[in-house]
Amino acid sequence: MPTKRRATATKAHAHEREDILNPHAISTLSAGAVSAMSAVGAAVIKQNKAALGQNADWFWHMFAKCEAKAARLAEQATHDPKACGDATFIETYARNLPKLMASALETREKALKAK
């Protein structure tokens, strides 16, 4: 019985982390979806080079959180009865990651100006 509790606690802890992509979930994706995620991520990083140069630690932390959230949103979209599997995943991920990162950068800029 304690084993089940430990497993549940571990799973609950994993859900609390916003900056981690579930390795099991990634392993279920096709190579094309993973490749598309990499391409979108690279484009977002390239688009925000100035922010990366200003504070790399913050940028990578926020990028990881945004990436994980975009993947969760994309995974949820694939459960729609009209969804087309990997195509829906890729489209949703590509639509959300730049928006999430832009929102995080905007929030940070506002916070820095308020100081």
Score class of each variant (00 low, 15 high):
Met1Ala: 10
Thr3Pro: 00
Thr3His: 13
Lys4His: 09
Lys4Met: 08
Lys4Gln: 10
Lys11Phe: 10
His13Pro: 00
Arg17Ser: 09
Glu18Val: 05
Glu18Tyr: 03
Glu18Asp: 08
Leu21Arg: 15
Ser30Cys: 02
Ser30Leu: 01
Ser30Trp: 00
Ala36Arg: 09
Ala39Arg: 07
Ala39Lys: 08
Ala39Ile: 07
Gly41Ile: 08
Ala42Trp: 03
Gln47Ile: 00
Ala51Gly: 04
Ala51Phe: 13
Leu52Phe: 10
Gly53Ile: 02
Gly53Asp: 14
Gln54Trp: 02
Gln54Cys: 02
Ala56Lys: 15
Phe59Arg: 03
Phe59Glu: 04
Phe63Arg: 06
Phe63Pro: 01
Phe63Glu: 05
Cys66Phe: 05
Glu67Lys: 15
Ala68Leu: 09
Ala68Tyr: 12
Ala68Gly: 10
Ala68Cys: 10
Lys69Gly: 00
Ala70Gly: 02
Ala70Leu: 07
Ala70Ser: 10
Ala71Asp: 09
Arg72Phe: 07
Ala74Cys: 07
Glu75Trp: 11
Gln76Phe: 11
Ala77Ser: 14
Pro81Ala: 04
Ala83Thr: 02
Cys84Trp: 01
Gly85Met: 01
Asp86Glu: 15
Asp86Phe: 01
Thr88Phe: 01
Phe89Arg: 00
Phe89Tyr: 12
Ile90Ser: 01
Tyr93Phe: 15
Tyr93Ile: 02
Tyr93Cys: 02
Arg95Thr: 07
Leu97Thr: 06
Pro98Trp: 13
Lys99Trp: 08
Leu100His: 07
Met101Leu: 08
Met101Phe: 04
Glu106Gln: 15
Ala111Leu: 14
Leu112Gly: 03
